[in-house]
Write a protein that binds this DNA or RNA. Structure first.
Lengths: 255, 255
DNA sequence: GCTTACAGGCTTGTATACAAGATTGTCGCC
DNA sequence: GGCGACAATCTTGTATACAAGCCTGTAAGC
């Protein structure tokens, strides 16, 4: 593949996995082209590849947007991950020592990142655990699949997750590795199932399927006619999709 | 997505699943563009999407080729399918009656196609069973994943399969459905594992990593100088194949 | 004052032109 | 006669130009 195209693709996917790009973010072709110093052609290539991988979508003549999975798609993504990752653990007969070592090191890194409060690194590592697991098997196809799925569930978490439970996730990972070390693969699979289930259960899938959620919350208390003057038109389109949730998204959780 | 682009992509993928396109086939951009009545741009889009899905590959400034999975990739593909499809069956608690009905009908169609000797339809249906299974769960993501994997294993079978065992496969499918109907999902998963294992075991993964295999077979009996004059040229290009699809795959021989 | 029609700007969609590289067929040389 | 270099041809790689459509801001009409 083209090095430049691959770089764009990889850069965007990595940014998503690290939680640096929010769902719904608009990715303008020309803007990306300038950013990477290439022409729109290459950017379009990368975008189309990412579209087939399920992480961006094109809206006709409007632009490319990072996907905002619906509640239904969220359920599918988690179901798919459960199936694949438990299937993976079940398929193992034994775990090579070097794989165990590598996984333990990874969990240690998770704890460090959590302790250091590095939110991007943390999100990246937590997702990466699952990718690492597949990779340790030496199966690149599976790794790619899980990587794409993880990108999607990361976006889902950003959309629907009211609370972050990084410590709990890392602890789950630790338990899974412990079960693997004990040779209890079935137990590890069960723990993995529960782990993914917990992450899914921690989401509020009824809450934020639309970008108006924040606004809707303002409206529902019937405080609409209260004091805020002419809220509707002026505030529905603050700027535009591209800049609207450009950065300060994660601040809106759990209150 | 674009309708035309999607059509090209789908047409080629379907053709692969039906065994109508051989691994290693060259897919020229202009030729496809003429065929579908569009410009090269659209063809390139479709090709890049298919490349992302792992069914074609581009060789720089030489053309697009249907992938010829190596023995290693073949093992990975089967391993991945085993993991996912057994994981799928394990994840089920019960099978809805309409799904069972649909699967039974599918198996019946397989038998019909086998009886009728329709080789393309048969190949398509045998692969489609697995796709159908995921689809019946209502999980489109999983369906897409399995579809792509099935395309690859279909190509692998075309490359390495010395014998076709359509009846046996169909019979396996029947057994799997029967186990599902009996509510024995664990048993169904085991049967699925064995089924995929059987298909994999039926291959000769040491035999045909290179496109010269047929030629090599002619050379080895040392009958080369015997009586057939200038055999090589006439038989290397049986029909049009565009040209020789002998793009220098590094993994040529093994012995 | 509010609604509706319209125009301008901006973004993607598509085709085409040209550049770069690879393969192949041919000619000259040894 | 065999081998190597060269040129013609074909194919993809990349950029750019133009067309088409959406969004937004403005102005006119009710």
């Amino acid at each position: 593949m083209n090095p430049a195209t691959a770089n764009i693709e990889e850069a965007i996917l990595s940014a998503i996995l690290a939680g640096r790009i929010n769902p719904g973010t608009r990715l303008g072709e020309q803007k990306l082209a300038d950013l990477f110093g290439v022409s729109r052609t290459r950017v379009r290539e990368a975008m189309m590849r990412l579209e087939t991988r399920g992480v961006v979508q094109v809206s006709a003549r409007r632009g490319w947007y990072v996907v905002e999975p619906s509640a239904e798609e969220a359920r599918e993504a988690f179901q798919t991950r459960r199936i694949i990752e438990t299937g993976l653990l079940h398929s193992l007969r034994e775990v090579p020592p070097d794989v165990l070592k590598s996984l333990k090191e990874h969990v240690a890194m998770e704890r460090d990142a959590i302790g250091a409060g590095d939110v991007h690194s943390r999100a990246c590592l937590l997702g990466d655990f699952h990718i690492h697991l597949a990779d340790a098997l030496g199966n690149r196809m599976l790794t790619e699949i899980i990587r794409d799925l993880t990108a999607r569930t990361t976006l889902i978490s950003m959309l629907y997750q009211p609370t972050e439970k990084a410590e709990e996730s890392s602890h789950d990972h630790e338990d899974i590795v412990a079960a693997m070390e004990a040779g209890d693969l079935a137990g590890a699979a069960r723990l993995m199932d529960e782990h993914i289930g917990k992450v899914e259960a921690g989401l509020d899938l009824t809450a934020k399927p639309d970008p108006l959620a924040g606004l809707r919350a303002l409206l529902s208390p019937a405080a609409f006619a209260g004091n805020a003057p002419s809220v509707p038109h002026t505030h529905v389109h603050p700027q535009d999709h591209s800049h609207s949730h450009s950065h300060g998204h994660p601040a809106t959780k759990e209150d």
